[in-house]
Nucleic acid binder design. Structure first.
Lengths: 228, 228
DNA sequence: TAGTGTGAATGGATTCACAGCC
DNA sequence: GGCTGTGAATCCATTCACACTA
């Protein structure tokens, strides 16, 4: 039972060893809700309240936190401010991450301009494309940077300490571009192309297939007829 | 073991009863890969090959299909063309779905223009915003439609048989707009705002939080130092 | 009284392994 | 020999239940 005054009772400061993946995914959601509670000036919150906000049981919430340490006070709950700090530290968003966006089509441009990234500490410091018409253009939302040709990825990644890349290129380019990311020393790739990428184990890959998300919704809706 | 010649051996044509959610999620990925195999003129494919393409075991693939019916031929594998048809039918993408996009900021516009939706049979037939400067504008990629004010959602949803909505509005509007969707008879909501929405059980909700995806990547990368 | 932390029990999903078919 | 379909075994995640603390 941590003192609750910010003492570091971390269990496994680094490696995702033995921690259920679903628990890690939920951690991000807890953090998001905690920031809401904080915005409402709540000082403490219970596992029950946090769970209710996300449709989870209180036991689930406590168990999830339990994988990472002891953050609560029996009879009281969790200190919102402190827990936000702990979760940020655990997830790695207690620092700024430099990110590249590759591909400046509709989606790539929207992702480049998306404010939600910076709010979480992800700063887009370079954008790439291979279209000569786009290379050299200034990014409207980030006046200090220009679209670079993909061939400059490796050099720029090193110069600017870029560790994460967002891939928004057509499906047929996704795998080769991912390989360029690997060669450039990128450690994590967030892929929006509708393909399954292969990369060495030391490079993390997450894919978001927008059409698949809609397809899953369609499946869930299929049974029931139009509501009216 | 189905004859393999397209006979409908469906087990549970409609309801997601008793089927593991993870299996349903993978179904979309199987379909995507099968379409690749088909594009390469492959006529049949084994559970092993399909699994390898996605980093899954062959047993997993067979078990997943087993929840929905018997589609394979022992000694041969699966007929690519037939299985594509079966999965489309199961997932509901053997028809066209009319979809609304709500919110015409950067992200909303990019999603409106995204070609991947139509390829899967999701057709955007209406877009909404509440900004008077945007209402009335023609959508560049879909010349036949104009941005409508959100207050027209209910009427338009009924007129155009819209069953699914894509939400790309600022976080603070997401819940109220979701409620307007519910009131408009929408059956499924794909939410891109970084909030957890509440909706009645008969309305399906899926959320994609872009910043959370990067955060998860950051977590997985945290342990290892920059690669070079 | 209100609420955490955590072993033990339960419930689900994945993997194994093999009978049966081409 | 190659491959599916599926019960049985295993593994993993969630839920329960309660000792303990403020």
């Amino acid at each position: 039972m941590a003192s609750g005054t910010g003492k570091d009772s971390g269990k496994n400061p680094a490696g995702p060893e033995g921690i259920p993946e679903p628990a890690v995914r939920r951690l991000s959601l807890y953090l998001r809700e905690l920031e809401n509670f904080r915005a409402n000036n709540r000082k403490t919150v219970s596992s029950r309240e946090l769970g209710d906000a996300l449709g989870l049981t209180d036991a689930q919430v406590r168990k999830d936190f339990g994988y990472f340490g002891q953050f609560g006070q029996p009879g009281i709950g969790y200190q919102v401010e402190e827990l936000v700090g702990q979760l940020r530290r655990i997830l790695g968003t207690d620092r700024v991450w430099n990110v590249a966006v590759i591909g400046q089509g509709n989606l790539g441009r929207a992702l480049t301009a998306y404010r939600g990234f910076l709010r979480k500490g992800f700063q887009i410091v370079a954008v790439f494309d291979d279209d000569p018409d786009k290379v050299g253009q200034v990014i409207p939302s980030l006046e200090s940077i220009r679209v670079q040709h993909i061939r400059e990825l490796k050099k720029t990644a090193a110069d600017k300490w870029i560790r994460l890349a967002i891939l928004a290129v057509p499906a047929e380019y996704a795998q080769p571009v991912a390989e360029q990311c690997v060669a450039a020393g990128i450690q994590g790739i967030l892929n929006f192309a509708p393909v399954s990428l292969t990369a060495p184990a030391e490079v993390a890959v997450t894919s978001v297939d927008l059409a698949v998300q809609l397809e899953q919704l369609a499946f869930r809706v299929l049974g029931s007829p139009p509501r009216f």
